[in-house]
């Protein structure tokens, strides 16, 4: 069975969630990579082959892929023979797959943590209600679309890696009513983006607006910096850093909440993380209820000491 994976790429590089999605796809059938935008480099194609893609179907649609309906039309053409399409779940891909499902009649589950075949049907698992419930969903339609969250599958190369063949896909894009007047790129910070980071260190009201220690701790642990809604509302840090139901949902192996009380909106964006650690002055803060390791104390005392200890242990 052909399982298509929409490859997410940044500056021409394949992102790690795409490799996770290919790994997941191998468990369902034979992966085929779908690439929208400018043609992939030879390195990118080789990497996709290493993770099991037999083909890389390229639709050179450039910036037209910014229109959800056009992106969906291109994917529909590129995946005509695939009964399953996997994408990385983001606000943008959710719009694209909705359009794709309208075109193909597919059943859709987004924000999934995984998928498997049961009696020939795709079943997905995910958490809902701020990650307090586990839900398993069967896709009954003949075609299935699954949006998977980053960090939910461990990416691994295929046992028998092949050389992927590049196939150009000719697509006819529909007219769009919408006109994209301007696109202003958001300067990308160094390191892994928040949604993909294996470690996230977040700061909230308790930082008082000073993110120095939070950033230093994140760097030491190889992670990204997050924030609570309070902190972004205060203008202490940009909205792109907000972890929560209306910001970025993260599922890292380690989440460190510094000076964050853990309001339900925030918890919904991070509660499915592997290990949760918190540092907060208020012992009654709800964040303690979902933390594996909680410290009642000041982040300004605790973080420097933790950094020093980790550095010492690494040196020794």
């Amino acid at each position: 069975m052909s399982v298509a994976v929409l490859i997410d790429h940044r500056s021409g590089d394949v992102t790690r969630p795409s490799l996770e999605a290919l790994t997941l796809a191998r468990g369902l059938g034979s992966p085929v990579a779908v690439w929208l935008g400018d043609a992939p480099s030879a390195d990118a194609v080789a990497q996709l082959g290493e993770y099991g893609a037999a083909e890389v179907r390229v639709a050179e649609v450039g910036d037209e892929a910014r229109h959800p309906a056009k992106a969906a039309a291109a994917i529909a053409t590129a995946t005509e023979d695939s009964s399953v399409v996997i994408v990385i779940s983001t606000f943008v891909t959710k719009e694209i797959v909705t359009r794709l499902a309208v075109l193909t009649g597919a059943g859709v589950v987004v924000d999934a943590a995984g998928a498997e075949l049961v009696d020939g049907k795709v079943e997905t698992f995910q958490t809902v209600f701020a990650a307090t419930w586990n839900v398993r969903t069967r896709i009954d339609a003949e075609r299935a679309i699954v949006g998977v969250r980053p960090n939910t599958t461990q990416a691994s190369p295929a046992e028998a890696p092949g050389a992927a063949t590049v196939v150009a896909v000719a697509v006819e894009l529909p007219e769009a009513r919408e006109r994209i007047v301007s696109v202003e790129p958001v300067p990308q910070e160094d390191g892994v983006p928040l949604s993909e980071a294996p470690v996230v260190v977040s700061g909230g009201r308790g930082t008082g607006g000073d993110y120095t220690l939070v950033a230093e701790f994140a760097e030491l642990l190889g992670g990204a910096v997050g924030a609570s809604r309070d902190a972004t509302d205060e203008g202490w840090i940009s909205h792109e850093h907000m972890v929560g139901q209306t910001g970025t949902t993260v599922t890292p192996a380690l989440y460190v909440a510094c000076g964050i009380s853990g309001a339900v909106h925030h918890r919904g964006g991070m509660q499915a993380s592997g290990t949760i650690v918190c540092i907060n002055m208020d012992p009654d803060a709800p964040i303690f209820e979902i933390s594996d390791f909680g410290v009642v104390g000041s982040l300004f005392d605790v973080i420097p000491q933790a950094i020093e200890r980790i550095k010492a242990r690494r040196a020794g």
């Binding site: 339609a141 390791f293 104390g297 933790a306």
Partner: peptide
């Protein structure tokens, strides 16, 4: 096009630890 086949409440995290900082909580955390 989809059916929820199973839904269950996630169990609370087990073995949670909370320490109050008396001077060495950063080390304990590390």
């Amino acid at each position: 096009r989809t059916t929820v086949v199973d839904a269950s409440e996630r169990p609370p995290r087990e073995n949670r630890v909370t320490v109050t900082d008396t001077g060495d909580a950063g080390t304990q955390l590390a």
